[in-house]
Nucleic acid binder design. Sequence first.
DNA 1: TCCCTATGTAGGCGATGTCAACATTTAGTT
DNA 2: AACTAAATGTTGACATCGCCTACATAGGGA
Lengths: 193, 193
Amino acid sequence: MQSPYHHGNLREALLTRAIETLNDRGVEHLSLRALARDLDVSHAAPLRHFPTKADLLNAIAVEGVQSLIAATDAAQSAPPGSGRLRAMALAYVDWAIAHAALHGVLRNPDVMRHASDDLRQLLIAFAERQKQEIEAAQNQGWRKDTDPDVLFLHLVSLTAGTAIVMTEDIYRDPVPTADIRHKVAASIDLFLK
Amino acid sequence: MQSPYHHGNLREALLTRAIETLNDRGVEHLSLRALARDLDVSHAAPLRHFPTKADLLNAIAVEGVQSLIAATDAAQSAPPGSGRLRAMALAYVDWAIAHAALHGVLRNPDVMRHASDDLRQLLIAFAERQKQEIEAAQNQGWRKDTDPDVLFLHLVSLTAGTAIVMTEDIYRDPVPTADIRHKVAASIDLFLK
DNA sequence: TCCCTATGTAGGCGATGTCAACATTTAGTT
DNA sequence: AACTAAATGTTGACATCGCCTACATAGGGA
């Protein structure tokens, strides 16, 4: 049949198409009705899967954080210590560059304002793992005398900040372009080496 | 007369009220029509001053950057060097905390995507000054052997990241609360002392 | 087979951004 | 002072959007 009454996998299709739209048009141009049109579905169909637009964005954010966690998990193959922290920080930045749209959603205050409990839990777990890595690194002698809270604050600020500087258009002008990936690593090494 | 045909200073009134709304309701609830209602003006009146909603947000962003620059200018009373850089970084973070709404606009990718040339110029000038401060500090011996590009990247990432961590709700859970201002200073000192 | 739930459709409501046509006020020129 | 042009505000309209309600269809147990 040409178009079956039921789409079959509308939820996934919505998420995929939404992320595509996000990539080239930004959050402001993301609309449930336009998504429905794109997928040849009635204008209210998306509401069956995401009762509200915020729910859609929240689901995208959850996917994003899971993807981010998976990316930094891969960096955990390194032995514990400041080297592993370094690998995780770089993995974070690389992930942000590779998934700019998802990263943008995670950085959008208007999305995160309505973060679901699931999403918050994911982020807290992620933060917790970073704290453990810091503790492990300190046990190996790295910045042994510094307050762990300060190290955590510094790590989070530096990684989040670097990711933003590398992905947001507004920083493109002042930031050096030549050999940027190497400079990012050197910048992170100022803290983690 | 009760309500004169002309408001008198609608442009300023719009900006002021918009920032207020931003503060307690967020960008998503900012609407030109609601602003018009708040100011007892017809629904299309704001368009005379801001042809599009993006123009309004852009104007707010310009005010924000000017305010930010003024705040960090005050920190320039310190003598040049890493100490002045430190003062500027802390002034940045303090400004972000004190003007969370403006800071949120500046950090909103959907706002900055349409940044006007004015706005971009302001930001470039701000970045340029930071580069000069780094050079001055290096001339005084601070991290003399490090690539200035790397130092700049690190400074921008760290300050932007810290401001975000301190202002965005989503970081409130994992970040330590006790003595936070002191810890922020300590975190910045890891780089600037 | 029958029913329940999940999923999709059709229509509508209030709100929004933006446009066009018109009104009023202000400022500048003569 | 009179005339005119520009600035500023009003009214009405249109397309779109999020979301709601009522209804239609499909699929999966009992």
